[in-house]
């Protein structure tokens, strides 16, 4: 945790634009470079920056560990769920074309949902990794 006012103010100013850029990369991934993997890491970097500057406790107030854990699992679940929904609609696993009115609309919707799932998992895994590394107290173990 740093007392330096420049760092603290800059972090507060930068926090929202980083997440906005992450969302842009997430949902613009169909038309330009980007996608779930990159967006997840960018959004995670905003939370990690906040944790570094304001301390781990403040960071965990922003995103409680339990919420983090649930979202971490939910991303992977969303991906699998799309696969099973397409199976219930009478097509093979992960063939998105049944989700929409026509082939292309279905593919668009499916790709959007699973990219969101990927982004959610990657983002929360990265935050969880950082939290568990910086919150570890080695002497209390064994």
């Amino acid at each position: 945790m740093y007392k330096n006012p420049i760092l603290r103010v800059c972090t507060k100013i930068l926090f929202a634009p980083i997440i906005l850029f992450g969302l842009y990369v997430q949902f613009h991934g169909d038309y330009g470079p980007g996608g779930g993997f990159q967006a997840g890491v960018i959004v995670a970097s905003a939370f990690i920056l906040y944790s570094i500057v304001f301390g781990l406790n403040e960071g965990q107030k922003l995103l409680p560990p339990k919420v983090n854990l649930v979202l971490l699992a939910f991303g992977a679940f969303l991906y699998g769920a799309v696969g099973f929904i397409t199976m219930l609609m009478g097509e093979p696993f992960l063939s998105y074309n049944v989700l929409g009115e026509n082939y292309q609309a279905g593919q668009h919707l499916g790709i959007l949902i699973i990219e969101f799932g990927v982004g959610l998992t990657v983002c929360n895994v990265m935050i969880a990794l950082f939290n568990s590394f910086s919150g570890y107290q080695p002497n209390q173990g064994s």
Binding site: D30, G35, Q104, Q107, H108
Partner: peptide, 12 residues
């Protein structure tokens, strides 16, 4: 698929 970014369409 109708998506310009080929990498995304293969990936997903």
């Amino acid at each position: 698929i109708g998506i310009p970014n080929v990498v995304t369409s293969i990936l997903a």
